[in-house]
């Protein structure tokens, strides 16, 4: 019975989350990874993928009514796009009027 409780999709998701963390941790130690595969963008994408896994599987938005699930999914996608946009084009967005003192 214990096996039924532990061998679940949630546990699989947890292992995936731990592995993704290890990959990001390792990638950030590679000196040339930015040049080769845009490592930092990849690290941010992995982060938002992890956020989605937590929201859908741990917070159980995957079992929630469609309105909550879609609101969550859209919010995560918008947050990811905003963070990536400011990471890559921060100085242009500041020049276009985003306030910094």
């Amino acid at each position: 019975m214990m096996r039924d409780l532990l061998l679940t999709r949630t546990s699989l998701v947890w292992l995936l989350l731990m592995s993704a963390t290890a990959v990001s941790w390792y990638m950030s130690t590679l000196p040339t990874v930015d040049v080769v595969i845009g490592g930092s963008s990849m690290i941010l994408l992995i982060a938002f993928f992890k956020v989605r896994l937590v929201v859908v599987h741990f917070m159980e938005a995957g079992h929630a009514p469609a309105i909550l699930r879609f609101t969550s999914e859209i919010a995560i996608a918008v947050a990811c796009l905003l963070v990536l946009a400011f990471y890559h084009y921060g100085s242009q967005l500041v020049a276009a009027g985003f306030p910094v003192s």
Binding site: L44, V54, A79, Y87
Partner: peptide, 26 residues
């Protein structure tokens, strides 16, 4: 209990983004 769990997962997911942003992204 589900409400409490939802809040606790929020603490987790905020850190999931904070960690790479502050510590990892070059």
């Amino acid at each position: 209990l589900e409400s409490g769990a939802t809040y606790w997962h929020l603490v987790d997911l905020l850190w999931i983004v904070l960690f790479p942003l502050l510590y990892l992204v070059r």
